[in-house]
Design a protein around this nucleic acid. Structure first.
Lengths: 148, 148
DNA sequence: GTGAGATTTCGAATCATTCTAAGTCACAAC
DNA sequence: GTTGTGACTTAGAATGATTCGAAATCTCAC
């Protein structure tokens, strides 16, 4: 179920938006609420349908806009797997993604700092990386736990 | 320039195709030749245009088909970055990819076995991964070396 | 050389995403 | 209070990569 944002989450959203010179709008709050409510890496379409339950007039274009805005101000991450629809993830801690071949579900995999460091170390001099994406693809035993 | 396949490459192609019950055709040879000739991670469209120089009647759909076939029998790897066109890479050794923000060019980054191992070790029990994709995104000093 | 099945071809269809232009809103200036 | 400004939202059209469908062609075993 979609619950309202906690005061803390609301502040987090407001701060990030205002810091980058943008406004807090009902649509942005609704989309952000959806993202936090179920952290199952929804696609734009899934976010759209979930958000419509709460705000029926919301348009798909706005969902695209909101998500792009959030990515821009560092509130959420995009997750891409091959050419499938882009998914969105409010987990900002460094982590990898595991996509289950059977269910299509995406799980977050914690990424310990030393592993991240060893990864960075494989870059030859002169290569300066801001973003590292790590994705696994395979089978996960169905445990149906939360995927963040 | 596009040179012909070496005998060795030709055998490699034939073996892989036949092993998975498929046929060697002039189109598949042409596409494979293009992939080996310039290992700059071309998009389908780039492969298409390069291959047309050698085989003018070749169709785009066939290029898609050939590349899919090659991926299926393990001859080449797909490389995806966000939602850009899929690129193709005949380097089968374990490696990561680095995409240069400025040029869009993709470089292969060697992946030492111990780093690969440490990466695999972050998967919780029950997660079984066949494929790991690692991609960096940032700036590379323009050295214009070969990108494989 | 023939036939069965695989492959190629062209163009149409699909699907996620982006664009466009008009409409709306919040708020500041007058 | 009205007006202006700029950001935001909206619906629908446009785009671009990829896939599909159906007919024509090729390949290889017999």
């Amino acid at each position: 179920m979609i619950r309202n944002l906690t005061e803390q989450d609301k502040e987090h959203l407001q701060e990030a938006l205002i810091k980058s010179g943008q406004k807090v709008t009902p649509q942005r709050e609704a989309v952000f609420t959806v993202l936090l409510a179920e952290r199952d890496h929804p696609t734009v379409d899934e976010v759209f349908h979930r958000a419509r339950e709460v705000m029926p007039g919301l348009s798909l274009a706005t969902v695209y806009n909101c998500l792009e805005t959030f990515v821009g101000c560092g509130l959420v991450r995009q997750v891409n797997h091959e050419r499938e629809s882009t998914r969105y993830c409010p987990n900002l801690a460094p982590h990898a993604h595991f996509r289950d071949k059977e269910t299509g579900r995406v799980h977050d995999i914690e990424l310990p700092p030393e592993v991240l460091k060893s990864l960075r170390s494989i870059l030859p001099p002169g290569f300066d990386s801001e973003v590292i994406e790590i994705s696994f693809h395979g089978r996960a035993q169905a445990k149906d736990h939360h995927s963040n």
